[in-house]
């Protein structure tokens, strides 16, 4: 081995040793910080912390249209009520069933369902306002939403107990903006369900033009509990 080579190896060896030491110390530091982290962050079964923001402002361009006169008038006879809204879901948060016959049995996504359910509006076929989907980017609608033949009844009865719907009036203080009581997964677009003539009256906002809903309405559907200081 030439002196030059020997020098180079020494340099590599020293660098490796330093690197190893850094990794070791760094690792220790990481371990150290993990050991003081609050236990609840590592608890099994924790729900993912915050709901997604995607699609929040998707219907913003329609917000002003949702304010047009007559919006608070009685909806057309075929429209949803709060009771039918829940009836169409097997549990709170389940994908709703399709409560009507399909106009085009074999058409796909954008060519069928979304022609009414992307932007909503009055559908004379059903004498109802079409509900607006909060996730129009998902085109395979019948992957999750299926029509029902009520006459088929049940194959065998079930003893399933459903997750109940959250309460609607949940303001913390008199008059304070009520928190969001439900999960936001695939429902991050508030205006789809809470604005416009298709919205169920009990959950329809009177100020859709504000658009940035979550500025005032906090998401409160996570695990219950109050703040606790670590180690107290």
């Amino acid at each position: 081995m030439t002196p030059a080579e020997s020098n180079r190896y020494w340099t590599i060896a020293t660098a490796s040793a330093l690197l190893a030491a850094t990794v070791f110390v760094g690792g220790r530091m990481l371990l150290g910080s993990a050991s003081v982290a609050p236990a609840r962050l590592t608890g099994e079964g924790d729900t993912p912390s915050l709901p997604a923001e995607t699609g929040v402002f998707r219907l913003a361009p329609h917000a002003l249209e949702y304010r047009k006169p007559g919006e608070q008038e009685a909806p057309p006879p075929g429209s949803r009520t709060l009771a039918s809204f829940y009836q169409r879901r097997a549990y709170a948060g389940a994908p709703p069933v399709i409560p009507h016959r399909l106009l085009n049995l074999q058409a796909w996504g954008g060519a069928s369902c979304l022609s009414c359910h992307q932007d909503g509006g009055y559908t004379p076929e059903f004498k109802a306002m079409a509900p607006v989907t909060p996730h129009p980017e998902l085109k395979a609608c019948v992957q999750c939403h299926v029509p029902q033949q009520e006459a088929a009844g049940v194959f065998r009865a079930t003893t399933f107990t459903r997750l109940a719907a959250p309460e609607i009036e949940g303001s913390a203080l008199p008059g304070s903006p009520p928190p969001i009581p439900h999960d936001l997964q695939m429902r991050a677009n508030c205006l789809a369900c809470h604005a416009g003539p298709a919205a169920v009256r009990e959950v329809r906002t009177d100020h859709p033009e504000r658009v940035n809903c979550r500025q005032c309405h906090a998401w409160n559907a996570g695990p219950e509990g109050v703040f606790e200081r670590v180690g107290q």
Binding site: A83, Q87, G153, A157, T161, R162, L163, A164, P166, A221
Partner: peptide, 18 residues
């Protein structure tokens, strides 16, 4: 709801708050 969803048995309310 029970009259609307035949075949589904709904439990008592206290057992199923979110």
């Amino acid at each position: 709801a029970e009259t609307m969803m035949p075949g589904v048995v709904f439990a008592a309310p206290a057992t199923r708050l979110p």
